[in-house]
């Protein structure tokens, strides 16, 4: 258990969060520099994948649109700087906020037209606290293992995982995040193809470099 300090306009002080990584630096935002370096390089499909097929699309998972709900802390984040969500919004018992501040209090199942309006997609929310799926601070290998781990991924088998990654409307929102938000740069078709390529090749994870952050 460790204190996490929040930044930006809405200081959230004294929030206790469960920390999963062995040694995590305390940070107020999602620092792209935390992305661990990897020695693997993306290669064309091969039957003997050393994890390179995963690292070929992991940049999508690390994008702020995804990390807002897959970062440390029991709260969502906002913006490309990953500041804590305004208004003291919490993960809540099911990942959908608490009491009068649930995700659906402000978010619809679709984006609204206009700037500075809450974005939306079906089932808008965070992973539940039982399977929080926190990627911030993990190596590529750890992310890879965590998304494949049924204990962490809501019991999804590989097919269901790939479906979530490539077809879930909430995930797809990252490519269409509404006015004023940076979309995920890798085209969705390319991402989906890479995920499926990875699956076809056995969904291997890259070797752990030991570079845990």
């Amino acid at each position: 258990m460790k204190l996490l300090q929040a930044s930006f306009r809405y200081p959230v002080v004294g929030i206790t969060v469960v920390i999963f990584a062995a040694a995590m630096c305390v940070s107020s935002s999602i620092d792209p520099a935390e992305k661990p370096s990897t020695t693997a390089t993306a290669s064309s499909a091969s039957t003997k994948d050393d994890g390179a097929l995963f690292t070929a699309f992991v940049s999508v998972l690390r994008h702020p649109r995804c990390m807002s709900c897959h970062s440390r802390g029991d709260f969502p984040r906002q913006g490309d700087d990953g500041h804590p969500h305004a208004m003291n919004v919490r993960r809540g018992p099911e990942g959908h906020g608490v009491t009068a501040e649930k995700c659906s209090t402000c978010h619809q199942d679709h984006n609204l037209v206009g700037t500075h309006l809450p974005p939306g997609a079906p089932n808008w929310g965070l992973p539940p606290p039982t399977t929080p799926m926190i990627w911030q601070g993990l190596t590529d290998a750890q992310i890879c293992r965590s998304i494949k781990d049924p204990k962490q991924n809501k019991n999804r088998n590989l097919d269901q995982l790939v479906e979530h990654l490539t077809e879930d409307k909430l995930v797809m929102w990252g490519w269409n995040p509404g006015e004023g938000r940076t979309p995920i740069p890798m085209p969705h078709e390319e991402f989906a193809a890479k995920v499926k390529q990875w699956q076809a090749a056995g969904a291997s994870c890259p070797a752990d470099t030991g570079n845990k952050i």
């Binding site: 300090q5 929040a6 930044s7 200081p11 002080v13 107020s28």
Partner: peptide, 12 residues
């Protein structure tokens, strides 16, 4: 009289 603390550059 105000009582404050400053953590991580933010005043509480």
């Amino acid at each position: 009289v105000a009582e404050v603390s400053v953590e991580d550059g933010k005043i509480r």
